[in-house]
Simulated scan of single mutants.
Amino acid sequence: MADECGIALLFPGQRLTNNLIGSFNWFETGDSQRGGGEPLSIRQMIKQVVDDHSVDPSRVFVTGMSSGGAMTSVMLATYPEVFAGGAIIAGLPYRSADNMMEAMVRMNGYGSPSDRQLDALVRGASKFTGPWPTISVWHGDSDTTVDNSNASAIVRQWQKIHKVEGPATRVEMVDGYPREVWCDADGRVVIEHYIIGEMGHGTPISADGNEGLGEEGEYMLEVGISSTRHIADFWGLTGSGAARRAESKTAA
């Protein structure tokens, strides 16, 4: 897709000296705040890519799965001015945990901060006042590694910030799966939420056909919907988002 659409990609990698299983330390205080740790390191990488490749700074996006999804939440909260949008796949809300023990509890779907706390955590992460990045949330309903209640908590964390509290503006079926969207006062979709039925812990892919992407494997789960394409459409990177969603929509 990067070749197809002319997208510059950055893949930040974790050092095993920082985390023995190569995950991001999204739950550590020093790695979940602006100006230090892993968020600052990733921010510096982004600036380097933007400068080196003359990337439009208003068209920078961030996505990740699992600990990468949780770190996506961290980046969107701590450096919201950097991103036009973010996509959190099988992740967790920003600052929902402050240590490893809490992280394990939250991953199992217990003890999430209140909606008021979730909102305050993002607002307190920077001095930014908007406009805020758009949010795309994806999660499998059979995920036994990160409970899908975290997906709903992510949506709630950003609803008040985007001034779209309450039920979804509409629900539609896309490639056989429900897509909830929340629209702002101008009718722009600012939050979207996909729950993928019977999918475990991983990234939803659709590898078949002319527009297939990826290859089924560990954490790359063939479920007949390409999160990659739909997220890129949502961000306006493909130039065909509205048309593609219209083709794949079966009910509204």
Rank of each mutant, 00 (worst) to 15 (best):
S67N: 15
M100V: 14
P80H: 13
G91E: 05
A90M: 10
L92G: 03
M65G: 08
F83I: 09
G91K: 00
V74M: 05
Y79F: 09
R95D: 05
M75R: 02
P80S: 02
E81F: 10
I89Q: 05
M71V: 04
A84I: 05
V74P: 04
L76M: 06
S67Q: 13
Y79A: 07
M71A: 02
N99K: 04
E81T: 14
T78I: 12
N99C: 07
V74L: 05
A77I: 02
M101R: 13
D98W: 15
I89M: 12
G69E: 11
M101G: 11
S73D: 06
T72N: 12
L92Y: 00
F83G: 05
T78G: 04
I89Y: 13
G68H: 09
T72K: 07
A97T: 09
F83H: 02
M100N: 10
N99A: 00
V82A: 13
A77E: 01
F83R: 04
L76T: 01
A87E: 08
G68Q: 09
P80Y: 05
I88V: 15
A90F: 11
M101C: 10
E81N: 04
S73V: 00
S66G: 07
G86I: 05
M71W: 03
I89T: 10
I88F: 06
A87L: 10
R95Y: 02
M65D: 07
T78W: 13
M65C: 14
S67G: 07
S73A: 13
G91H: 01
A97Y: 03
G86V: 08
Y94H: 13
S96K: 02
G85H: 09
G69S: 06
M100A: 12
Y79N: 11
V82R: 07
A70Q: 02
Y94G: 07
S67R: 15
A70Y: 01
P93V: 12
S96R: 00
I88K: 07
I89R: 06
S67E: 01
A70S: 12
L76H: 11
E81D: 15
V74S: 01
P80I: 06
R95M: 08
V74D: 12
Y94I: 01
S96Q: 10
A97I: 08
M65I: 15
G91M: 05
V82K: 08
G68F: 10
G68S: 12
Y79P: 11
M71S: 09
P93L: 04
A84G: 15
E81H: 09
P93T: 08
S96Y: 14
S66M: 10
M75V: 11
M101Q: 14
S96L: 09
L92K: 03
M71Q: 13
G91R: 03
G68C: 02
D98Y: 15
A87Q: 05
A87H: 08
A77P: 03
A87M: 10
S73P: 00
Y79D: 11
G68V: 00
A97M: 02
T78R: 06
M100I: 12
A84L: 08
A70K: 00
L92R: 04
E81P: 06
G91L: 01
A84R: 08
A90P: 13
M75S: 03
A84M: 08
M75I: 12
A84C: 08
T72E: 00
M100Q: 12
A87C: 15
